[in-house]
Amino acid sequence: MAEYKLTTPLSDDDIIKLKAGDKVLLSGVVYTARDAAHMRIVESIKKGEELPFDPKGQVIYYVGPSPARPGKPIGSAGPTTSYRMNPFAPILIELGQKGMIGKGKMSDEVKEACVKYKACYFASIGGAAAVVGKAVKKAEIIAYPELGPEAVRRLEVEDMPLFVCYDAHGNDLYEIAKKEWANKL
């Protein structure tokens, strides 16, 4: 398993070299969106409206951070459970989104979209939110402020530690790891 430093936006070449189980330290801009923001973004796509950001080459972090204390860019900011974004991820991947950051399983449709359009699902450690939040250097709300924690934020991150979970070759880290460690007690 390899370790890579990547900076967004990501290209097809960045994605193709990644294998499930690789570690990535991600830097650059990532956008936050959860359930409510995805519903609105996909609604806007259907209506042909302008989106809060162009998904091409971008990474979306599934997170609803806790409020920032004065002088800090963000509060705790660990990943939320990704399967709730199953209906939306393939639509955005088709539009050029290159990565999702979250925790937990996603659907076969998401896996297939990762292969077809060269994208990658990165797993972060759920509940390690104070540590993950420290990788965020800057945060600003760019859309849907009325959604509170679910507003779309533009984050600048530095060396955010991630695991490649679904790669562009159809591999699934959760399945690989589970098989390796089953019946070992």
């Binding site: 925790k103 880290l173 959760y174 089953a182």
Partner: peptide, 11 residues
């Protein structure tokens, strides 16, 4: 014995 492990990354 499922092997799922911490954060689901095996163990």
């Amino acid at each position: 014995n499922s092997g799922i492990g911490p954060a689901g990354l095996g163990g």
